[in-house]
Nucleic acid binder design. Structure first.
Lengths: 228, 228
DNA sequence: CATAAACGAACGTTCGTTCGGTTTTTTACA
DNA sequence: TGTAAAAAACCGAACGAACGTTCGTTTATG
C-alpha cells in the first residue's frame, strides 16, 4: 500500500477530527452551533499541539494558547473547562481514531505475513498523518490525571496486543518461527514510535515514510519468517 | 557479558557521578567543602530525577524539590543558580558518562558481530544502571535552552553513529549483508530506548535486561548477518 | 570567633480561572 | 425585506494562588 492511497482512503481532516471530538464532548463545550464550534476547535487543537509539542504542555500558558488560536481567554473557556481537560481531550480523541483505523484496515486479512505487514504500514502511515497527535500523546502521558493515565497505558498495550496476536496466529499456522510474540510486538511498537518521535532526524535524511515502512517490514520478516 | 559483571566493572554510584558533576561546575556551586557538596548534590539529583520523571521537570516546583531533598530554598540556590541550569547540568553529566563508558567498552574489539553485540549490550546495561538519567534526558530534551538542545541532538546522533560505523565496517569486511547502516543504527537505538522509556512494561512482565539484550541482538544479527 | 552553610519570609511575575459587559448572529414579527 | 428583541459568542480586566529567585538573618562547624 502506498502512503498517498492510505491518506486519501481515510477521512481524517482536522475538521473531521474536531467534529468527532465535539460530538464526544457535547455536554462540556458551551458553544451551540456546530459550524462555529468546529471552526474554533480546529484553531484550538492546532495551537495546542503546536505549542505543546514545541515546549511541552505544562510550559504552555493559556495566554500562549489564546493568542496563537486568536481567541480571548474567555472564549477559550467556552470550549474547554480546564487546561487539564484539554490535555485529556486531545489524547482521548487520538486513541479513538487509532483503534478505529487499525480495526477497519485489518479486518478481512488472514494470511499472517500479509496481515503483519499491513498492520505495520497502517500504524506507521496513521502516525504520519496525525504526527502532532502521536508525538503529543507520547510525551504528555505522564502529565495526565490518574484515570486518564491508566487509559493511555491500556491503549499502548492494546495496540501492542494487535501485533502480538498476529504473530501468535502466524506461529500457530506454521508460517512464523517460534519467537516471543509479546517481546516481538513490543519492539515493533518501539520502532514504529521512533518514526514520529524523531521526525526531525528522518526528515533531515530525506527518508520517506514508505522507505521506513519497507525497511521495518524487511527487518521483522527476516527475523520471523521460517528460513529455507 | 552479564549485567551484574557490567555493573561492578564501572564505578557509577550516585556519589561518583555527583563528584564528577561538582568538579565540572566548581565555579557555579557556592559550597566550599567537597564532602558537604557531594552529599547534598546526591540528594538534589535524586529528588530532581524522581519528581521530574514522575510529573515532568516543568511541573516540578523548586518548593517540591526543596522539600523532597530536605533543603531550604536558600540552600538549594547555593548548589544551582537557576532551575534551567539544573536541567542542563543533569543532561550534560549523563552525556559525559555515556560517551566515556561506550568508548572504553568498545576499544580493542575488532570482529564486527562481536563489536555490535557488545555495543548493544553496553548501551542497554548502562541505560539500566542510569535509568532515571536516560529517561529524564529523553523526555526533557525539548525543554532545554537553544544551545543545550543542540548538544543533546548531537549526542543522539553521535551514539547512533557508533552503531552505524560498526555496521559499515562489517559490510566492508564481508561479514554483514548490504543494508542501510544509518537506518539500521537508528532502529537499534529506537529499540534500546524502549527499554528505559517503558520500564514499567518490562518490569511488569518480568523481562530481565539480559533477556531483552539477547532478544535484541538476535533480531539484529538475524537481519544483518550473511545467510548460509 | 570567623567562616561556611542553611534558613525561610518576601518580592515581582505569571499562572489558571472567572465574570460582568460588549459585540455579533439569529429569530420573530411587520 | 427591514428591524427590534433575544440568544449566542466573544472579550479582557481582575483575582488569588503559585512560581522562580533573592537576601538579611540564624545556625553549625572547626
Amino acid at each position: 500500500m502506498k502512503f498517498e492511497a492510505f491518506r486519501k482512503s481515510i477521512r481524517l481532516s482536522k475538521e473531521d477530527i474536531s467534529r468527532d471530538l465535539l460530538a464526544e464532548n457535547r455536554d462540556r463545550i458551551k458553544i451551540k452551533k456546530e459550524k462555529v464550534a468546529v471552526r474554533n476547535l480546529v484553531k484550538i487543537l492546532d495551537a495546542a499541539l503546536a505549542i505543546g509539542n514545541a515546549k511541552g504542555f505544562a510550559s504552555m500558558s493559556l495566554r500562549d494558547l489564546s493568542s496563537e488560536a486568536n481567541l480571548s481567554m474567555g472564549a477559550l473557556y467556552a470550549y474547554i473547562s480546564s487546561k487539564e481537560e484539554l490535555l485529556d481531550m486531545i489524547q482521548q480523541q487520538g486513541r479513538i481514531v487509532v483503534v478505529k483505523v487499525m480495526n477497519e484496515s485489518l479486518s478481512g486479512i488472514d494470511e499472517p505475513a500479509e496481515k503483519l505487514k499491513t498492520a505495520i504500514q497502517v500504524h506507521l502511515y496513521l502516525s504520519e498523518v496525525m504526527q502532532p497527535w502521536f508525538y503529543f500523546s507520547y510525551m504528555e502521558t505522564k502529565n495526565l490525571p490518574r484515570d486518564a493515565h491508566r487509559k493511555a497505558i491500556e491503549s499502548e498495550l492494546l495496540t501492542e496486543g494487535i501485533f502480538a496476536e498476529i504473530i501468535e496466529a502466524g506461529m500457530a499456522k506454521g508460517v512464523f518461527r517460534q519467537v516471543d510474540p509479546r517481546l516481538s510486538a513490543a519492539l515493533i511498537k518501539a520502532m514504529l514510535q521512533d518514526w514520529y518521535l524523531k521526525r526531525w532526524k528522518y526528515e533531515r535524511r530525506k527518508v520517506t515514510v514508505e522507505q521506513y515502512g519497507e525497511f521495518l517490514v524487511d527487518l521483522i520478516l527476516s527475523y520471523i519468517l521460517i528460513r529455507d
